[in-house]
């Protein structure tokens, strides 16, 4: 179609053929209703319903065979027709991605997910060192923080005394390494996804704000998740460990080389129906 209009496919006719009004669908429906109503009233009602439904069906049949009955409806005069669509006075200014004033922040480039993996390992290692240091300095035991972390999943540790927590536990060690490792990796992935989206001062968000959010969340829920830890946690140390984790993880992610995303591509290109090169 040339131009940009919703244009007529032909000249305006004087009459338009539409299906003729008919009572037979209503009669048929009424007959069917009577037919089933007879089940709960009287057989005679069903018999009448059957007759009415058959009459309706035959009438309907004759409406459409051998050809549809229709009526020629006169087209209303031009003065009563829809007014032509008026061209709008204003113009639309399209904002471009990255243009000043554009509020949309699409991560056109992201850090690879592998950076999240590395960052999670690095952040987790630093956090573990600090936590173990806390155990040694405050409780004279490397195992204390590990056992405390494992208490969420190991019932014997959840009810253990402080002395028992200071002692080595193979189950505590296995569970602690697993839990700390998995959570560190997952949070590392979250950092890899989120860091490009921070508007500015990424170090502040990654290193301080997110660890504080996490600490707040843990503070609110720890008595349900890990009552043993909640009762014994040293919050200043906990915050220091979290911030150290956040800073190291954010730093490792931020140092990784960014890769281009397809966020700015049209959907058709993204799902492979057409190539981006063709559009360009």
């Amino acid at each position: 179609m040339p131009g940009n209009e919703t244009k007529p496919s032909s000249e305006t006719p004087t009459h338009i053929a539409l299906p003729a009004p008919t009572m037979w669908p209503m009669v048929t429906a009424f007959g069917i209703t009577l037919l089933v109503t007879g089940l709960v009233t009287n057989l005679a009602v069903s018999v009448v319903g059957l007759v009415v439904a058959l009459v309706g069906a035959v009438g309907w049949w004759r409406d459409v065979l051998p050809a549809d009955r229709h009526e020629h409806v006169p087209v209303v005069p031009p003065s009563e027709r829809a007014q032509p669509v008026q061209v709008a006075a204003g113009r639309v200014e399209h904002l471009k991605l990255g243009q000043a004033g554009h509020r949309v922040r699409v991560p056109a480039e992201i850090h690879p997910y592998s950076s999240g993996l590395k960052a999670g390992i690095a952040g987790g290692a630093v956090m573990a060192v600090l936590a173990l240091g806390y155990g040694l300095i405050r409780h004279g035991s490397l195992w204390y923080p590990i056992n405390l972390l494992s208490a969420a999943a190991v019932p014997t540790l959840a009810t253990a005394t402080t002395e028992q927590l200071r002692a080595f536990s193979s189950t505590g060690l296995a569970v602690g390494i697993f839990a700390h490792g998995v959570v560190s990796l997952l949070v590392g992935f979250v950092y890899a996804v989120m860091v490009p989206m921070f508007p500015r001062r990424g170090w502040l968000w990654a290193g301080i704000v997110l660890p504080l959010f996490w600490t707040g969340l843990f503070y609110g829920t720890s008595k349900f998740i890990n009552p043993a830890l909640a009762g014994r946690v040293d919050w200043p140390w906990f915050v220091v460990c979290q911030i150290a984790f956040g800073m190291v993880t954010g730093y490792v992610v931020a140092r990784s080389e960014r890769i281009e995303t397809r966020q700015t591509w049209p959907l058709a290109a993204r799902i492979g129906i057409e190539s981006q090169e063709e559009r360009e």
């Binding site: 940009n4 919703t6 496919s9 032909s10 338009i16 409806v73 209303v76 669509v85």
Partner: peptide
């Protein structure tokens, strides 16, 4: 009217009336 449109329309986008109102865009 009973027939909806005097002539059946033809469209090029999801917002055909926008196209008519904004022929430059």
């Amino acid at each position: 009217p009973p027939y909806n449109f005097e002539v059946l329309p033809e469209v090029r986008s999801r917002r055909p009336l926008w196209d008519l109102k904004h022929p430059t865009d």
